[in-house]
Amino acid sequence: MLNKLNIRRRTELPLKEDKANFFLEISTAISVFLFSMALVAYFMTSAVISSWRESIIDGLTVQILPPSEQILPDEETLRIGKVIHFFEGLSGVEKVAVVKEKQIKKLMTPWLGANADLEALPLPKLLNVRLSDGKTFDFEKAGDDLKEIAPYASIDNHGIWLKKLIKSATSLKSLSLFVLILVLSVAVFSILYAVGTSLKVHQNIIEILHIMGATDNYVAKQYALRGFFVGFFSSLAGTLMAFLALRIVSHLSSGLETGLIGAVSLGFEHWTVLALIPLFSAVLSMVTSFFCVKHTLKEMM
């Protein structure tokens, strides 16, 4: 019976009873929650941006409005040929193809209904322009130049506004990165503060341990161990809160057709990273505590 009691001994530093513990546990859980949410925001914006980038690479569409009055087929071919020729002359263009009338009709049905008399409507002609690199292609300049040569044709400005969207999404991404760093520093400062307070509270015990021949490492290890467990379990709580919040958000938004954004979701690797946060947090807390103790003891006594 004695042996059992002795094995489950209490540590020399009663860190479990520290007053700062509750503060640290709560602040760690909240930090981890915020960190997870910011990380999700970061993942989402990154995914959205790269999916938008890819759709730019695809190419662009050119719309050629029908002439306002009847013209000869030859003239019609000339009008279209001028535009095709213009694009073929641009660098970065791989291929220009006329979209078949049948396909245009198919594209129109959702708007006009299957029974609409399409023959009676003056349909625009569409060109598909495939680009070798959509990221470097200057949509705006091509649009302006086209307007001069053929005012009746226009670039579907898909690429232009996607580029603008990407720009704002990129600033959103930077913002979430900033929040990540901010939350991380707050968490580290909380640990430093809690450990610093605890060291002052236990100064007497630490002095006794030192006189008994304990090294700074011996003391620091007790803090590191405590830091690991507080870090892990508080973070686990924060991560669970974050998962719950994400579920609620995705449930609420599942009814909405959010178009471009709705198309992106977190992948397996993202969920793995989120799930690993408690471990990361525990290690961070452990290392921070350890070095904080080492540093403070050197200054203190």
Partner: peptide
């Protein structure tokens, strides 16, 4: 310090630990 044994005037025991654990401290730190 590990080679020096000290009895303090005011004992300076770790009050929250058992007698056993107090005596064990110098051995555990090494």
């Amino acid at each position: 310090r590990r080679k020096i044994g000290v009895v303090f005037q005011d004992f300076r025991l770790l009050e929250h630990l058992s007698a056993y654990d107090n005596v064990a401290v110098p051995l555990r730190v090494r």
